[in-house]
Amino acid sequence: MSGAALLVLADGRFPAGGHAHSGGAEEAVKAGRITDAASLEAFCRGRLHTAGLVAAALAAAAAAAPTPSNSDAAADAPDALPRRCGWPPRRLGRQLMRAARATWPDAELDSLAREFPKGAHQPVVLGLTARAAGLGAADAAYCAAYESVSGSASAVVRLLSLDPFEATAVLARVAPEVDRVVDRAVVAGLRVPGEGAGVLPSASAPLLEIGAEAHAGWGVRLFAS
């Protein structure tokens, strides 16, 4: 475990393509569901306990025991990772893969890139990246759970001109729940090697998915998702 490596991977400036994505926040802002810090907080909480939990569990599983093909297939199961949940998972997985291989050169990452040249699921790549960085399952889960809310919060700063201090305070208020989600995710992720991917949580967020489909059809938008 290396605390500093975790900071490198979790840094919002880690160049893995996330800056162009709002995690469904752009659609929610347009629909009037996010209008201020309080509604951003509610949105983040919903995202954390659905998309965030699933992603964190997948990341923890991949970090604990990399069977990339199995994890990636698990992520594709319709009840496992909601298809969009506000992020296009394979595209972001491919972008993370590039950044990860340049940052922590690693044979397992190379082999995953060879198997999925157009991108594996982002949480699976994240789990292997954590391994390559000398990090553990909980670290991978933390990165996944935190980025499930931090990306949306920074997008809303741009979308609503929300006070950036308020947006950061939202993340601080959600942080204890991030801890709890990570605990659940790690417990599930560590059971995968013995019991299979069926033990992974499959929380879904239908409104996020519907919103993502609608957003993908917009002619004018600031964020890619």
Binding site: H19, A20, S22, R98, A155, R158, L159, L222
Partner: peptide, 20 residues
């Protein structure tokens, strides 16, 4: 390429989408 409201980020700080 879509740039998330930040065109200079996509060509300088985080070039992954453009490289792709």
């Amino acid at each position: 390429v879509e740039t998330g409201a930040c065109p200079h980020t996509a060509i300088r700080d985080d070039i992954s989408a453009n490289l792709e």
